[in-house]
Nucleic acid binder design. Structure first.
Lengths: 335, 335
DNA sequence: TTGTACGCGTTATCAG
DNA sequence: CTGATAACGCGTACAA
């Protein structure tokens, strides 16, 4: 028993295939109720499903989006995926999720794969910025796309971003207000613009109060726990600072671990502020003060933006605002 | 400038479309080197990409798999996704990832969506077991599928599973060997078979040493941190047990939090053993002893199994072995 | 060794 | 208000 086609439906209903196609696509202006219902009934009965290949062949649309994220193992991204997926599904799109594992060549392979799969659009969270060669590929393939999280500086393309500078500023201000003066910062890779944005906002907050961030107190990480763990060792052993701002929660976790190993108590000896507010940090003891972003909603917004693009509506980037969530890991310094 | 077709390639290369199609599909037995190379060169030059819709229409294959997972926010599943994705891509399949959010109706909707998208196969991690109505839908749609993680008891269908009973046993044995006699267990939902498997293995280990698990010491959770956190309160306050086995790491995190709030020290006052060994638990202090499963590899194996099915090779389920990873959260009880 | 011609299941155009 | 029919781009049986 093979799949039924609109031809079969047409026969069963005693109408032409055109008519069936019409009700399928709700192009029913001025169609008799009776015909319509007859067709609908038959379709219902046999649980008819149109062939997407044939459809795509004609319409050139796959009803599928692609999503490329840099690292699915960072809990930030599953949240983002959920947002994108939910919004896409609600608009009747499927989603192909690709994890580039922070590797540029994988990113390129996936771009290619999505092109081959003829997705209708791509939501792209690049490794760091939108690579010119990627940009060229996307435009050559004429695939509409929106950026998300990474690539804000790309003024030519719209996307959904966080005001990272503001996030950094909030973190800095908070620590300053608590009275900290000797502070360090563990940033993401220098090559990633949002790392620098967070750092700059952070430094601005310190400068406003006449506090300087020593170069030796700026540590470059890779947004992952492991490296932050190792790289924070020196810093913590020297005991020069009373507070650390980790530019994402995963790295804050690494600092927690190292602090614990060195017998440094949080927040008594050391205050820590993270960034992202990923769900899992509720497991940290003490609870982590962090800069929150509404990742799920950003995912949804990206899809809305993409759909606008498909409809040829002029789009502009959306900037989300981070907020400070004060918990237990930040207190005034111990004098 | 529209997309090029094999017809265009054929013209440029001065051959027929059949010839182009042949080199595209590597059906080149007995084709002259020269023709072949000529075609290949043209395809290279224009960066030709065949139209998947037209292909699918003829071959009835989409080169796409679907993956349904119950909860992408549990870090166990991103690992699984990575495995599935990598293996699928290596075999030139794309992957549509669907997150059912532990909701049966979403599960059904996704099954339907994947059917509509005409995926070539589905890797299905059901909410708890393979629902008869899902089973019927899958078989009616004739979509090959393999189960993963959940649904082992389904003898009719093959899949990739963990020996959960053994995992539970390892946890129990470990605690017994450390000298614990008053032990509690936080299990997953009763409706999920693997919850019971883990519990049974665990109980078997205790029984072998004449230790009984009191009904009041069996607490039903939902595999999530939050509920384990709340539900462990009573248990911890009564101070009846010296050790807890949490049936997944997320729930272990919840216990950590509650223990901390109540001033119960781990492992001095309380030993804890988790399950899964998800990456993020390296952030826990002290480090969590847990039952490890090779989630990534399980994902890969599931795809291999699925591809075998597509090739009409007889398949049997694959059972993975969990291992005990002793870290810092389990020590002999304090007497 | 290569080419011709048909069919896959839809949508869109035009005619009735 | 409804129906023929020509695309869409590819794979393949059959022909040369």
């Amino acid at each position: 028993m093979k799949r039924l086609t609109i031809k079969d439906i047409a026969e069963k209903a005693g109408v032409s295939i055109t008519t069936v196609s019409r009700v399928l696509n709700q192009k029913e202006e001025g169609m008799s109720q009776k015909t319509r219902e007859k067709v609908l009934k038959v379709m219902e009965e046999v649980d008819f499903q149109p062939n997407q290949f044939a459809r795509g062949l004609v319409t050139k649309r796959s009803k599928t989006f692609g999503l490329i994220v840099p690292n699915i193992s960072n809990p930030y991204f599953p949240e983002l995926c959920r947002g994108v997926e939910d919004e896409a599904n609600e608009s009747e799109y499927s989603l192909i999720i690709c994890n580039s594992d922070d590797q540029t060549d994988k990113e390129k392979r996936y771009l290619r794969l999505l092109e081959e799969q003829q997705v209708d659009g791509i939501i792209f969270s690049a490794k760091d910025y939108l690579d010119p060669s990627d940009e060229e590929q996307l435009s050559r393939a004429k695939i509409p796309f929106v950026l998300i999280d990474r690539g804000k500086e790309e003024k030519k393309h719209s996307g959904v971003f966080l005001d990272n500078d503001k996030g950094g500023y909030l973190a800095g201000k908070h620590l300053i207000e608590l009275g900290h003066r000797n502070i360090a910062c563990i940033i993401g890779p220098r090559s990633i613009a949002l790392s620098n944005d967070r750092l700059e906002g952070f430094q601005r907050a310190l400068r406003e109060s006449g506090v300087e961030l020593l170069p030796s107190h700026i540590i470059e990480g890779n947004f992952q726990m492991e490296m932050a763990y190792h790289k924070s060792k020196d810093l913590l052993m020297k005991k020069e600072v009373t507070a650390i701002f980790a530019c994402n929660d995963m790295m804050a976790c690494g600092v927690y671990r190292m602090a614990h190993e060195l017998g440094i108590r949080i927040p008594t000896d050391l205050s820590i502020v993270g960034f992202d507010d990923i769900p899992l940090i509720s497991a940290l003891i003490p609870k982590l003060t962090t800069i929150r972003q509404d990742t799920y909603q950003m995912g949804r917004e990206a899809v809305k933006l993409l759909i606008q693009k498909l409809d040829n509506i002029e789009t502009t980037s959306v900037l989300f605002n981070p907020t400070l969530v004060v918990r237990e890991s930040s207190t005034p310094p111990n004098v």
